[in-house]
Simulated scan of single mutants.
Amino acid sequence: MRDTLRREIERFAIVYHVEESDDTVRFHVQPIDFKGLRMFLETLTSDYDVKVKFRFGEFVIELKKHRERVWINVVLFVATFVSTTLMGAGMFERFDLIGGLTYSVAIMFVLGFHEMGHYIFARRWGMKTSLPYFIPFPSLIGTLGAVIRHRGRIPNRKALFDVGVSGPLFGILASILVTYVGLKMKFEPTYKGEITLMLGTPPLFDLIAKLAGFNGYYIHPVAFAGWVGMFVTFLNLVPVGQLDGGHVLRAMIGERAESVYRIVPMILIVLGFVTKSSIWLFWGFITVFFAMQRHPKPIVEEPIDRKRLVVGILTFAIGLACFTPNPFVLTKG
């Protein structure tokens, strides 16, 4: 490993000294081609944890062989399953563990299916990516969602598009299925609290409600899991930076997407003031930070094909069908 890496690094830098210990190699170098060295090190990030330090007038490149810690994924999955089960059980009149388990399976399916879409297509393009990391959190839905980590550079804009668009499309299919099933499940609590959480329903949810023949007032927690999936789909498809919508737009229109990234957060903030919804204000300020970071460039910048452009436009249209101006409204009585 050391000799092969040294030969490659010597194409861009003078190597003075090499240290090796366990799975880590350190190269003390003086760069002669900064751009070439940077691009080469970027190619190593799929297999190594790369660190570059500057000491005593020379650069030290530290390469540590990356190892996936699958046990972390398992622990987070179990913790999130417990968290969503407990939160789901509390959605019933009396603490209902079976009902909580039903909700937990539904929400984990929706979130997990979204992330598996990314995972499958990243693997198809030969990109290194982790298994999903679920995030437990004792909130209304019991989780902050799930993420996967990509390592290394993006091969081209087609790969960027496929990986970016697959998550929302997989996720919305799961959301539609879970919503339909949930709306078919009876849920009519006899106890009415002083404060009721009203959900703003997006057009896609209303369409599924008609297809399911739903005409009730309260929805089963399983249907709520489907609603969450639609809400998350819209948030993810906001075309900014490292969000799925940012990836898709970057693949569709190239570096011109950077201009869009700067405008969208302002639109969300204005929307928050107009609708008096703190959610859009919060998401607007969050996306400001996404917009401040330039999107990583794919290795090959050639445009995507017309078929992908059509799929991208339809995906953003689906995202709009998941939008509701006031997602949560608390009412008394």
Rank of each mutant, 00 (worst) to 15 (best):
E301N: 13
V274S: 00
V270P: 02
H118N: 04
I208N: 09
K51V: 09
R153D: 05
I318P: 10
I286E: 04
M292D: 03
F95H: 07
K158A: 11
L243T: 03
W280G: 05
V105L: 15
K184E: 09
G145V: 06
F161A: 14
G272V: 01
G216Q: 12
Y133C: 03
T129H: 02
T85L: 14
V50C: 07
A159W: 06
A146G: 08
L144G: 02
T4A: 11
R26A: 12
P132L: 06
V240W: 06
L199P: 01
V52P: 01
L86I: 15
N236G: 09
A209K: 13
D47M: 07
V25D: 10
R26D: 14
M230W: 09
R55E: 12
D3Y: 06
R124K: 14
F12L: 03
V82P: 00
I98V: 14
V240I: 12
L199I: 03
V248G: 02
F282Q: 00
F170N: 02
Q293R: 14
M116K: 00
A291V: 06
V74H: 03
K297V: 03
T80F: 08
F224I: 11
I9E: 05
K192L: 12
A209F: 09
L207T: 14
F234N: 08
R250L: 00
R256V: 00
F59E: 05
T315H: 09
L199W: 08
Y16F: 15
G241T: 07
P221K: 11
L235M: 15
